[in-house]
């Protein structure tokens, strides 16, 4: 349970960090909060020969409004994001998801970008990013590109991020809300203990008009496939409809039918699929202000 030897370098600038990544190829790894990387190194699932620390780079922390999105710099700590009322107002699903991420002790170190690049299929922030169709800004010493969250995660702990790239910022789309409309979001999950990785998790964001009809919806499930899944086409089926037990069940069943969960000692695939459907149905009803008791399943 002790990490293999490595060299450590605290970068003074993003430029320097990117240079080190380019210089060492796949042997170097960035460390920010380290809440996933350090345990992986302790278990020797990761053995970088160089660690480049970017946790204190001011240029990788903070956020600003950028058009129809909030641009959050990647090494912003989860605890800071969770506590920021302005950010919670602009992207409420982010705070709703963060409450489920690990514990206070891990959120005090862990970063938003770190969670996204670690890409655990049951993690909360990658699900929120997929559902909101966040855009990820990646930089290397020579290139710069922007990837949709849906295209970023390729499989469990596997992303499109190249060895010499750093996730520098995430654009979280902000939804405009018209006269008389309200924005609602729900994040929920089932885990063995609060703070553990979820057996299944759900994220929902809705705009409801004054008469309670859904004008816009985004839905997704985590922990039930190799990556978090968003269902924009199923969400679109809710547009112009009132969300009730029947419409919520219909969409939830259709979403769960597309998942390909794994099985382990805690829950088999069929149970996880059932959990996904039940969590999604309940989250839709709660977000729409409808009673959850007596729902179809």
């Amino acid at each position: 349970m002790k990490a293999a030897p490595f060299d450590y370098l605290r970068a003074d600038s993003l430029e320097q960090a990117l240079h080190e990544l380019a210089r060492h190829g796949g042997d170097a790894k960035l460390i920010a909060g380290g809440q996933s990387l350090v345990p992986m190194m302790a278990m020797r699932l990761a053995r970088p020969s160089v660690l480049v620390d970017i946790h204190r780079l001011a240029e990788l922390r903070g956020w600003q409004v950028a058009g129809d999105a909030v641009r959050l710099r990647a090494a912003s700590r989860q605890c800071e994001v969770e506590a920021d009322a302005g950010l919670a107002g602009a992207v409420p699903l982010l705070r709703a998801a963060l409450r489920w991420v690990g514990h206070q002790q891990t959120r005090n170190r862990g970063t938003v970008g770190g969670s996204l690049v670690h890409a655990d299929p049951a993690a909360e922030l990658p699900l929120a990013a997929a559902v909101l169709q966040a855009r990820l800004h990646l930089r290397s010493e020579r290139t710069e590109r922007c990837v949709d969250a849906a295209d970023f995660a390729l499989g469990p702990m596997f992303t499109t991020l190249a060895d010499d790239e750093c996730l520098v910022a995430i654009d979280w789309p902000t939804w405009s809300v018209g006269e008389g409309e309200v924005l609602r979001c729900e994040f929920d999950e089932t885990a063995i203990r609060h703070g553990d990785f979820a057996m299944a998790s759900v994220a929902v964001q809705l705009v409801l008009d004054a008469s309670g009809v859904c004008r816009r919806a985004a839905i997704g499930l985590g922990g039930v496939d190799a990556t978090p899944l968003a269902f924009p086409d199923l969400a679109a089926q809710l547009h112009g409809r009132r969300i009730d037990a029947s419409s919520a069940a219909e969409v939830a069943q259709a979403a769960a039918a597309r998942c390909q969960p794994g099985s382990d000692m805690h829950a088999d695939a069929e149970y996880r699929r059932h959990l996904g459907a039940a969590l999604l149905q309940r989250a839709l009803l709660r977000a729409a202000g409808e009673p959850v008791a007596g729902a179809a399943f």
Binding site: G34, Q35, L51, Q105
Partner: peptide, 15 residues
């Protein structure tokens, strides 16, 4: 760490 609770097994002393 700077007044906030953290897990000291999940960071290296150099950090």
């Amino acid at each position: 760490l700077d007044g906030q609770p953290v897990r000291s097994c999940c960071m290296f002393a150099v950090q």
